[in-house]
């Protein structure tokens, strides 16, 4: 592991787990204390998206709008254009697909300083099933002009991401999950929006991951080394936009083969972002771990990750396949 990143000491033993959305709730509260321009909106999901502490601390700056997501996004734009820093919060599917046109016109075309912070993204939402398992959001959001897209991998990275998007002037999308996920980073781990973190250096194959797939990528790298004597690099691409092409290209040059890993459809997300950069500047063999153009279903997060191939084993398999393409 890269020592300079001071990752969590228990990472490979018995990782501590916490939900990214808990980091969001805490950071939002801290942010509210520091900056009175910060306001929050939620669409009947305050408990789930963890805005309760903010609501309690700043009741006049909190807007429960009921189940009106279209309104929530438009109103957030209005608040932003009046100098507020609004966080519009709901589940990933209600905060993107359902309101895409509102984000496009009222937020992005207006260049309104709106932060869309969503939780329950991807299949790890679990038992609620496919209707709620948003798997296309990264594609939708990163194709919008002026939008910034951040996918933190754990609780602490989420907190840093919240501060970073609040500081950034312009529309931003923050994608979080529901489930408890391993703590990978520590307070000392650097975080800079638009700058990927090389978590582990390697020379044979590079694994580009984001969100909940960063952890399986890391343990896959350990297995590749132990079982196959393969040196795998692991890069945490927490920022899908702006995308850190420089780090990707450097890693691709060193390793000569790439595996992408994301909890998203195989098109339009991280895999696409990598392919766009590599195909233009440094054609490199790519394999991917992602959802195979299908919907999810009900189940526990772990069972779903297994069934849909978002696993350490699949990362290892795809790394070996990528190596064969070299």
């Amino acid at each position: 592991m890269k020592a300079s990143l001071t990752l969590h000491p228990m990472l490979f033993d018995k990782p501590e787990k916490k939900a990214t959305r808990d980091g969001f709730g805490e950071a939002l509260l801290e942010l509210g204390q520091k900056d009175e321009r910060v306001v929050a909106l939620t669409a009947d999901l305050g408990e789930s998206v963890r805005t309760h502490a903010f609501e309690k601390a700043f009741p006049s700056r909190f807007f429960e709008v009921g189940i009106t997501e279209q309104f929530m996004i438009a109103a957030a734009a209005g608040l932003a254009m009046e100098g507020k820093i609004p966080f519009a919060t709901t589940f990933a599917n209600f905060g993107t697909g359902r309101v895409y046109d509102f984000i496009r016109q009222s937020v992005c075309y207006n260049q309104a300083n709106v932060k869309i912070a969503v939780t329950h993204a991807g299949i790890t939402l679990g038992e609620d099933g496919a209707t709620h398992q948003m798997l296309e959001d990264l594609g939708m959001m990163r194709t919008l002009p002026h939008m910034t897209v951040v996918v933190p991998c754990d609780y602490l990275e989420t907190k840093k991401a919240v501060w970073a998007i609040a500081e950034h002037v312009g529309p931003a999308y923050l994608r979080m999950g529901r489930a408890n996920v391993p703590l990978i980073t520590t307070a000392e781990t650097p975080f800079k929006m638009g700058q990927a973190n090389v978590l582990r250096e390697g020379v044979d194959v590079s694994i580009a991951a984001c969100g909940v797939m960063v952890y399986p990528a890391l343990i896959a790298a350990v297995e590749l080394e132990k079982t196959h004597q393969i040196s795998a690099e692991v890069v945490n691409h927490h920022s899908l936009k702006p995308f850190d092409s420089k780090t990707l290209l450097k890693s691709a040059k060193t390793c000569g083969a790439i595996v992408t890993a994301e909890e998203h459809q195989r098109t339009s997300g991280l895999r696409a972002a990598c392919a766009e950069v590599l195909s233009e500047s440094l054609p490199t063999p790519i394999q991917y771990v992602a959802i195979e153009d299908t919907f999810g279903e009900s189940g526990t997060p772990d069972a779903l990750l297994q069934k849909y191939g978002l696993t350490k084993d699949n990362v290892v398999k795809k790394a070996l396949a990528a190596l064969r393409m070299k």
Binding site: A75, M81, G83
Partner: peptide
């Protein structure tokens, strides 16, 4: 909005400007 001062919000796709206006009123 970004093109012409005096335009308070970009509008075209319907049913959005009213939400923006309500947000401005909330602020």
């Amino acid at each position: 909005r970004m093109d012409l001062p005096g335009v308070e919000t970009s509008a075209g796709s319907l049913g959005q400007g009213i939400g923006v206006a309500v947000g401005m009123a909330m602020a």
